[in-house]
Simulated assay, not measured.
Amino acid sequence: MSLGKAKPVGTWIFDLDNTLYPASCRLFDQVQVRIRQYIRENLGLSESEALALQKRYFQEHMTTLRGLIVNDGIDPHHFLDFVHAIDLSGLAPNPALDAAIAALPGRKVIFTNGSVPHAERVMEKVGIGRHFEAIFDIVASDFVPKPDLGVYRRLCAEHRIDPAGAVMIDDMPRNLAPAHELGMTTVLVKTEDDWAGPDVDPSFIHHVTEDLAAFLWPFGLPAKTGSIL
């Protein structure tokens, strides 16, 4: 099994939410509720007004957080702490994903629009944190989110990633477009959630999977390490 090019992967870049755990866990639903609560409490809006603002900022600024920073001057650190104070009891260890990631050749990095503490909590519950050498979060990007191309360039520069030897895995199609532009191989983890984005031009998505562990497993086999990309 090959990812398209006869070259070993240097770096595997993983999104976090709804990628390294199933969207069916509904964790992001909790985050969305917390975002609206934050908007209500800090901007004095009703629930319907908060929902409308949340959606508008997400569309216009790529994340609601970015819109709140640009337009309302909120403290992003306080926002992140607040919206990530969620119940993770729905997450369970994933031994299959743990084994699949462990077997992969190359480095592994988390690239998330969330925060490092949130990523660490999630990875501890799933049982995969030991595999990742770095977490490049929204703080590291100066609160400029994916899919801003400059953030991808910054990730590659700070962590010495050669895009031509990298694979990026994300559940949002729009987040894979800049990765493709830089020369990465792209993998979409398909979900049924509307917020992940409508159907898009598939030319920048090289692979699609609904089971990340099953997709990754063949690329960790010794015979495949020379032809993964």
Rank of each mutant, 00 (worst) to 15 (best):
K5P: 01
P8M: 06
T11N: 00
W12Q: 06
F14D: 05
D15I: 06
D17Q: 09
T19F: 04
L20C: 07
P22Y: 09
R26T: 07
L27D: 12
F28A: 05
D29H: 13
I35V: 15
R36E: 14
Q37T: 13
Y38L: 10
I39N: 05
N42I: 05
N42S: 09
G44M: 05
E47P: 04
E49W: 03
A50Q: 10
L51P: 01
L53V: 01
Q54L: 01
E60D: 15
M62S: 15
M62E: 13
T63L: 08
L65G: 10
L68H: 13
N71D: 15
G73T: 07
I74Q: 08
P76Q: 06
H77C: 10
F79M: 08
H84L: 11
H84N: 09
I86F: 01
S89G: 13
L91Y: 04
A92D: 07
A92Y: 03
P93D: 07
A99G: 11
L104C: 12
R107L: 04
F111D: 09
G114P: 01
S115F: 06
V116N: 02
A119K: 01
E120Y: 03
E124Q: 13
K125T: 13
K125F: 02
V126T: 04
V126M: 03
G127S: 02
R130D: 14
H131T: 07
F132Y: 02
A134I: 00
F136R: 00
D137K: 00
D137I: 00
I138L: 09
S141G: 11
D142K: 09
D142E: 15
F143I: 00
P145L: 06
P147W: 07
L149N: 01
R154N: 08
L155E: 00
I161D: 00
P163M: 12
A164L: 15
A164D: 15
A166C: 11
V167F: 03
D171W: 08
R174M: 14
A177N: 03
A177P: 05
A179E: 08
E181F: 01
E181D: 14
L188A: 08
V189G: 07
D194A: 15
A196G: 13
P198E: 08
P198S: 11
V200C: 14
P202K: 10
F204Q: 13
F204S: 13
F204I: 05
V208H: 12
D211L: 12
D211Y: 09
L212R: 06
A213E: 03
A214H: 08
L216N: 02
L216Y: 10
W217F: 11
W217I: 08
P218H: 09
F219E: 11
G220P: 13
K224D: 12
